[in-house]
């Protein structure tokens, strides 16, 4: 069997808010077509780390990064790299479902493409249907594509956001606690969707729900206070972790 390609890797990635260092030198490799989870107690820097992968972190005034993040071999933090282009290759789904207000469902899905300059109507139609199908939302919305994005239920809105993200075909998708604002049934449908997405994309998800990481992720990394304590295959992390801190966390005796 072919060895899976490494699509994204961090090397000593550090993240700062002004003087405060939130993430201390983390290096992880991410393979294509896999789901990778990051778990850890609140405030351990997992979201900050994730947001540094698509250079959203630096949009906060005073925030910056050190170290390397290599997307298909090229370091996205090099001086001449345009963050906007990077973000077209590394998509992100947020905790609170956030369809753009005042835009219809159809417009929401294609807005990424439109604002990149794609004008061909039939191409947009095609892309919209394709993305909505992949997000398991097409059947539910095909008759009401003109309704506002906010008219859907929470779980549907989140799937709309996922459709919007995958419409621009990023090889990597980041998810920051994508189901914490959803009820259990909506959560289950999103997790099912993730298992489908894994066939095509590299997904990196931050979650504070250990069971979710155990359910969906192939690999799990455990952070505490900005440091990587342990990472590996989920089957190993959750049955026989090598570090005591990891063990304490997953058995609930800490954090």
């Amino acid at each position: 069997m072919e060895e899976a390609k490494t699509i994204l890797s961090t090397k000593n990635l550090e993240c700062f808010f002004g003087d405060f260092q939130a993430v201390k030198g983390i290096s992880i490799d991410y393979k294509e077509k896999s789901i990778n989870a990051i778990i850890g107690p609140s405030g351990c820097g997992k979201s900050t780390y994730l947001r540094s992968l698509n250079r959203i972190h630096e949009e906060i005034p005073g925030a910056y990064n050190k170290g390397e993040v290599n997307l298909l071999g090229k370091n996205i933090y090099e001086k001449d790299v345009d963050p906007v282009l990077i973000r077209r290759n590394i998509g992100m789904v947020f905790q609170k479902p956030n369809p753009f207000p005042s835009l219809s469902i159809f417009d929401n899905v294609v807005i990424g493409l439109k604002l990149q300059g794609v004008k061909n109507k039939s191409l947009l139609q095609e892309k919209a249907e394709h993305s909505l199908r992949k997000a398991a939302l097409w059947d539910e919305v095909k008759d009401k594509l003109n309704k506002p994005g906010t008219s859907l239920s929470g779980g549907q809105q989140q799937r709309l956001c996922i459709a919007r993200t995958i419409a621009v075909d990023p090889p990597v998708i980041l998810m920051d606690e994508p189901t914490s604002a959803l009820d259990p049934i909506a959560t289950a449908s999103i997790e099912e969707l993730m298992m489908e997405l894994k066939k095509e994309f590299c997904v990196i998800i931050v979650t504070h729900n250990m069971q979710q990481a155990a359910r969906v992720a192939d690999n799990t990394a455990f952070f505490v206070l900005g440091e990587l304590i342990e990472q590996g295959a989920s089957e190993q992390i959750f049955t026989n972790p090598k570090q005591k801190k990891t063990e304490d966390y997953i058995t609930g005796r800490f954090g």
Binding site: A214, F238, T239, N240, I250, T251
Partner: peptide, 9 residues
């Protein structure tokens, strides 16, 4: 209790 790791074993 959804035990993990050593507790599950």
């Amino acid at each position: 209790k959804h035990p993990m790791g050593p507790d599950l074993r």
